[in-house]
């Protein structure tokens, strides 16, 4: 070969062109005829390549990117359909979108759950709770009711007074709706509690009569001045009942307008404000209850 390379400069142009055009040709310098070029016999490898190239289109078994055997299209329509859609099909499309939609829904749900978990854990403080704590009041039968009686179920606490002009009745109607929605969706997991901030006028009997118009499940609590003042302080409720009452004095009581949601261990979870509808409030309670991993008394 080195011999032919060295002498190639002396080869005529036609031979050079041929050399460039085909690697399979080789020119040998000849003493008799300078223009004698002869075609070299194709090598076995090149021959093989040529054969396999020719064989490719017709062969179903030698595919470059897929190891699966492609089935032969039986009709012209099938071939057409295959050529039009390429690697995409309806089935692949549906699967793609279904998976995507599924993931979006899952991530959204998971995000909401994490948010709730954060709210719930935020308030499950170490040491003294920020909202809530010990109290001793009387229920509508006159029995002692303490913070221990709240445990076992979620509790929804509302502070108000029976002589309240318009906000408390509206909120208690909302509470009644929430009780029904939660009961329907989650069973008997909620204890609704009304705590009076008006110890002078709201005796157990008055509270009982008052609440009967809203919902039979609402537990009404009241107590003497000091006990009511203490529970309001524990729940960060502004307490404005005058310490002494002149006979026949008529007054209003300022009070907080939040529902306090407490978990089955008696810890504060969240405050549900007036801006939320009964449906929204009930949904919040149901969602927290779904996340709850501990025990819930359903009796």
């Amino acid at each position: 070969m080195s011999q032919s390379g060295m002498s190639s400069s002396r080869l005529p142009a036609t031979c050079l062109r041929m050399l460039r055009a085909s690697s399979d040709t080789i020119c040998k310098p000849s003493t008799r005829n300078f223009t004698s070029c002869q075609f070299r016999r194709p090598t076995p490898v090149a021959a093989q390549l040529r054969i396999s190239r020719n064989a490719l289109p017709s062969s179903a078994h030698h595919r470059l990117f897929s190891s699966t055997i492609r089935q032969h299209a039986k009709t012209v329509q099938q071939v057409k359909a295959r050529n039009e859609s390429g690697p995409f099909s309806w089935r692949a499309g549906i699967l793609f979108f279904a998976t995507g939609a599924g993931l979006i829904v899952y991530f959204k749900y998971e995000k909401e759950r994490m948010q709730r978990q954060r709210i719930a854990e935020q308030n499950k403080g170490i040491g003294k709770p920020l909202v809530g704590g010990k109290f001793e009041l009387k229920d509508s039968e006159g029995n002692i009711f303490t913070e221990d009686d709240l445990k076992g179920k979620y509790s929804l606490i509302y502070f108000g007074f029976t002589h309240c002009p318009d906000i408390c009745p509206d909120e208690l109607d909302k509470m009644a709706q929430m009780i029904d929605i939660v009961k329907q969706k989650k069973g008997n997991i909620l204890k609704a509690v009304f705590i009076s901030c008006d110890p002078w006028r709201d005796s157990p009997e008055v509270v009982k009569k008052y609440l009967a118009e809203f919902h039979p499940d609402i537990v009404g609590l009241t107590g003497d001045y000091d006990n009511v003042k203490a529970v309001c302080k524990a729940y960060r409720v502004y307490f404005s009942t005058p310490p002494e009452l002149k006979p026949g004095q008529d007054y209003l009581v300022d009070h907080s307008i939040y529902f306090y949601l407490m978990d089955p261990e008696g810890d504060f979870v969240e405050a549900i404000g007036r801006e939320r509808t009964a449906e929204q409030g009930a949904k919040a309670i149901c969602d927290f209850a779904s996340d709850w991993k501990g025990k819930i008394n359903r009796e």
Partner: peptide, 21 residues
């Protein structure tokens, strides 16, 4: 006088009373 309950409380207006008001 304001109507008193038997255990010393003062009876609150009922739903009907509130609506009238």
């Amino acid at each position: 006088a304001q109507p008193k309950s038997s255990d010393g409380g003062i009876i609150a207006p009922t739903r009907t009373d509130r609506q009238a008001c």
